[in-house]
Simulated scan of single mutants.
Amino acid sequence: MTDLSLIQYGLIAIVFVWSGFVRSGLGFGGAVLSLPFLLLIDNRPLVFLPLIAFHLLFFSSVTLITARVKNKKNATNVPSGIDWPYFKYAFSIIIIPKIIGVLGLVTLPTQIMSGIIFAIVTAYALSYIFNKPFSSNNKYIDVFFLMLGGYISGTSLIGAPLIIAVMAKHVSKYQLRDTLFLLWFVLVTIKMATFIYLGIDLQLVHHLWLLPAAGIGHIIGLRFHQHLLQGEQAVFYRVLGSILLIISSIGLYQILVEG
């Protein structure tokens, strides 16, 4: 990123503040809600993906450790921390498609793949916004969505909306963020290993100024997350649905522009 202007650097820093905010505030969205804006500044995905991946590994580990210490000190009857049974279940479904996506063993047309994802995400988002969750609870459809999300996560870092759409139905809101953080940590570790193996520049020098930027957003997001948990469950999922709708709208817009 040595060929960018000061204005571009400033805009990138702002986007990473936003990235840190949504990541800690909701437990997802650090990549999918920031990458579209970053690519408007500099259309080189492989410049930003290693930065986003490293930030996710760093801040998710910090959050999980902090949450674990806090839960031990403040024991309550409210379930918190990681939903281990569902994490193991979801990971067992996601891991094979994830590896397939990382290795590029199956290649789907980008437009078709993106269109399917954002159509599904839009449906889930509207159900959350209007407090009309899907009542079928069909485990086979959930498995399909988890597998597709795992594959997209392997090919890029934007499979989160599809995975969160399923996990939000099965994991308590008090455990959702930490469970997602653990899942992202494992999945992104695989992706980072791939970057290193392929010799992709990890942009290490830029962590010196982008980590503090993301850190500011991370701290603000932590407070926002606590505010969400203290509110009504319907409000929590309405906010979640609104974020998902923003994601799908950005994605559909990009598809139309590229088409």
Rank of each mutant, 00 (worst) to 15 (best):
L4Y: 02
S5M: 04
S5G: 14
S5C: 08
L6G: 03
I7Y: 12
Q8A: 15
Q8R: 08
G10Y: 04
A13R: 01
V17H: 06
W18D: 00
W18E: 00
G20H: 06
R23G: 01
R23H: 11
G27N: 09
F28A: 12
F28G: 07
A31V: 00
L33S: 01
P36S: 04
L38N: 02
I41Y: 06
D42P: 00
R44P: 01
P45M: 05
V47I: 12
P50M: 00
A53N: 09
L56P: 00
L56W: 00
F58R: 04
V62Y: 11
T63Q: 13
T63I: 04
N74Q: 13
T76R: 11
N77M: 10
S80Q: 13
G81K: 06
D83R: 04
P85E: 11
Y86W: 12
Y86A: 03
K88A: 15
F91R: 07
I93A: 12
I93W: 09
I93K: 07
I94T: 10
I94L: 12
I94K: 10
I100E: 05
L105D: 02
V106A: 13
V106H: 05
T107F: 06
L108R: 02
L108G: 03
P109L: 08
T110I: 13
Q111I: 13
M113K: 09
F118H: 11
I120W: 06
I120V: 15
T122C: 12
A123S: 11
Y124F: 14
Y124Q: 08
A125G: 05
K132P: 01
K132D: 06
F134L: 11
S135L: 09
Y140H: 14
I141S: 11
D142S: 12
V143H: 08
F144N: 07
M147R: 02
L148M: 15
G149N: 07
G150K: 05
Y151K: 09
L157D: 03
L162F: 03
I163N: 10
I163Y: 10
I164Q: 04
V166T: 07
M167G: 08
S172Y: 07
Y174K: 06
R177P: 06
T179R: 10
F181H: 15
F181R: 04
L182Q: 06
L182N: 05
L183D: 05
L183G: 09
F185D: 02
V188I: 15
V188D: 15
V188P: 01
M192C: 09
A193H: 03
T194I: 02
L202V: 08
Q203H: 11
L204T: 11
V205T: 13
W209R: 04
L211N: 03
L211Q: 05
P212A: 04
A213I: 05
G215V: 01
G215Q: 03
H218I: 01
G221Q: 02
G221C: 02
R223W: 06
L228A: 09
L229R: 09
Q230P: 00
Q230A: 14
E232C: 02
V239F: 14
L244S: 12
L244R: 06
L245A: 13
S249H: 01
G251H: 09
L252K: 01
L252C: 04
Y253N: 10
Q254I: 02
L256K: 08
E258Q: 13
G259L: 15
G259K: 10
